[in-house]
Amino acid sequence: MSELFIYLMPVDWLVDPLTHEFMRRALMVSALVGGVCGLLSCFMTLKGWALMGDAVSHAVMPGVVVAYALGLPFSLGAFVFGVGSVALIGFIKQKSRIKEDTVIGLVFTGFFALGLVLVSKIKSNIDLMHILFGSPLGISRSDVNQTLIISFIVIIGLLLFRRDLMLYCFDATHARSIGINTGILHYLLLTLLSLSAVAGLQTVGIILVVSMLITPGATAYLLTDRFDRMTILAVISSSFSSILGVYISYWSDIETGGSIVLVQTFVFLIAFLFAPRYGILKNSNFVNSN
């Protein structure tokens, strides 16, 4: 493998894969999904909804299986179960004395287990590995179309309502006191989260999709004190990581979802160490100089 890196010029390294239809498609979908999840991840990290992201992304599993079995678009099933899980979490929390994080853990593992059982019971051509770990290199044309539609909806929703959602994350009390319906904003954000999770599982799979929904936002958060800049940085870092991850996966013949998430984590670590204001190296200098 290392010979490839020696013999290929960087340009070839970039251009060669583009001669394949499946690679062009994979790169396009990965970049788009990366951007969409990156944008949403800003709201997730600022609202403190990382665990909620994890829950929704796992809870969509039975929805995907049922939709495939019934011949429906998988995104529809995933969406229904994603929103359903959140509603169930809210219901149990309200009706019992159990703390929220416990309820979240309880519900999403239950849904995920249901999905696993359904896959083993419903005899179909569903590839469990495909759902769990994603397969952007083998994505079908209809899946591409679904992903395009979902991405479009999420981007429009987030761009149009970014001010309200930002206010909701920052100071929900003020939002309510000036007559904004925060209940609608809450469910809008949850809906967009479910849709993003569906998009994200195309490229990195159910298990790793939470990384797409958190890491870019966390990285951007370390780099800026401006909300708009944070969203731009998150989108760029997420799309970049997705594209680079797919390339590395292609040349090194490694699992694509894992590759994308590893690049993303690596980008985060760089920000964690070297971020101009909030990187730990900067902080330790500051402490030493005092």
Partner: peptide, 12 residues
């Protein structure tokens, strides 16, 4: 609001 009620690491 009270000062404690606000997340002051929020990027605004």
């Amino acid at each position: 609001p009270q000062n404690e009620g606000i997340d002051y690491s929020f990027p605004v």
